[in-house]
Amino acid sequence: MLITCPYCGPRDVIEFTYQGDGNRERPQPASQNLDAWNAYVYDRLNPAGDHNEIWQHSGGCRAHLRVVRNTLTHEISSVAFARGDHKVAARHKAEGKT
């Protein structure tokens, strides 16, 4: 399996570290919303098909990547920097969620 890193181009999967399901939303660190923490830690969509996931190019530029990969065929339909998603926590704050 090749993952096309936006910096480094197509590289073998052994250069990358899987960091898991990218659909989960991490609650604010101070959040006491147990349901939100439980969902973040334990609950998974686990689709058979396109899966939104986070990889790190740990054996290369070390960038964190948001990858959409088909879990049946391993076809990768998109790779982008994950850093755009760091606004998740900020958005929660703006909406007054915990």
């Binding site: 399901d21 969902a39 334990y42 609950d43 998974r44 969509l45 686990n46 058979a48 879990t71």
Partner: peptide
């Protein structure tokens, strides 16, 4: 039931 504490 959309989510389970399981990954395949």
């Amino acid at each position: 039931i959309d989510t389970m504490p399981i990954e395949s």
